[in-house]
């Protein structure tokens, strides 16, 4: 490690996890989940995240996920309660002969939970994630996110869905912009208009090329995600750049599909580790932040409810 601070630093992301190791974890998780009739699920999830984070390295030092099955189990119970109440209300309304209203309440309820789930799961997951012992954190404001979320939903509805592109990018900007890595801040620069144009282009070219362009479309989506990311600390920064090509994506996706199909799903572990490796091999970091100077700033936060609500809603963690 160098003591002086050069203007340009060296950064290297990597994923060191092996498919075989993850396979063991997945199988043991399956076994325990089946034997406990599903109760083990939160612990299984914690183990999975611990592995995936723990095998991802930055400059040869691993990230770590410190969330525990117990925390997630509590979150799981709370999420279950929320859904039980919603379904209870729907059931009661249906019983009273207002089936339509019942279903409406259920959908509105689930919809209203979404921003809370996003907020909760980011807050929990970031606070349980560290690198060299330095915690990540999420500083978004719950009330603000709820307000923005419904404003964007409203715009999306009145523009007949066209605004959804801005919806996604605004949400990503908000969420990622509130991520802290010790005393450094994450930032996302994506714009709804650019994103929409890119997707329109991708959509039509995919049709014109009978699907072949979809790999390049995938590449552009990934690139749009990565290239707009940056990390800031004081006046220094790190820029993220994707180095993946369309051909790289063909290799990734086609082999992943074959792995799943020809192993009856047992190849799932290798699909995950390959994909993780692919992602981190294709993100290049450039900048002048000296990682050694990062300091602990974020609090310890232990409520995993949001995490499990988003699980129930089958939402992707990454917005």
């Amino acid at each position: 490690m160098e003591e002086n601070v050069p203007s340009k630093m060296h950064y290297q992301l990597d994923f060191k996890g092996k498919g075989e190791t993850f396979f063991g974890i997945v199988i043991v998780n399956w076994l325990l989940t089946i034997v406990t009739l599903g109760l083990y699920y939160p612990w299984a999830k914690a183990k999975t995240l611990q592995f995936l984070f723990g095998q991802t390295t930055l400059n040869d030092d691993a990230f770590a996920f410190h969330g525990t099955g117990k925390e997630m189990f509590k979150g799981f119970l709370k999420a279950l309660l929320v859904f039980a109440v919603l379904f209870g209300i729907m059931g009661a309304l249906t019983y009273l002969g207002h089936q339509g209203i019942g279903i409406l309440v259920l959908y509105l309820g689930i919809f209203a939970i979404m921003p809370l789930a996003i907020h909760g799961s980011y807050r929990y997951r970031m606070s349980r994630t560290t690198w060299r012992g330095i915690r990540f954190g999420y500083r978004g404001d719950q009330a603000e996110l709820v307000k923005l979320f419904f404003k964007w939903v409203f715009f999306t509805i009145i523009t007949l869905g066209i605004y959804s592109s801005w919806f996604q990018m605004n949400l990503r900007r908000y969420v990622i912009g509130n991520i802290r890595f010790g005393d450094a801040e994450m930032n996302y620069d994506g714009d709804g208009g650019d994103y929409l144009l890119m997707n329109i282009k991708g959509y039509f070219l995919t049709i014109f090329t009978f699907g072949i362009y979809s790999f390049w479309w995938q590449k552009e989506i990934f690139e749009y995600y990565v290239n707009n990311l940056s990390l800031h600390k004081d006046d220094k920064r790190i820029e993220f750049t994707s180095t993946a090509s369309g051909a790289d994506f063909i290799g990734l996706i086609v082999i992943n599909m074959l792995l799943i199909v020809f192993t009856l799903g047992l190849g799932y572990s290798w699909v995950v580790t390959r994909t993780m490796k692919f992602i981190f091999d294709h993100i290049q970091l450039d900048g002048n932040i000296d990682l050694n100077t990062l300091h602990q700033t974020e609090e310890n936060y232990k409520d995993a409810t949001g995490e499990d609500v988003s699980d129930f809603l089958d939402m992707d963690f990454i917005v």
């Binding site: 190791t21 063991g24 199988i27 043991v28 399956w30 076994l31």
Partner: peptide
């Protein structure tokens, strides 16, 4: 016991996986 199960090797996990799939 958890760590032991993880360390029990690829072959054992594969057999376990096939048994679970079968079940």
């Amino acid at each position: 016991w958890y760590e032991k199960m993880l360390a029990s090797g690829m072959k054992f996990h594969l057999v376990l996986g096939l048994v679970i799939l079968g079940l």
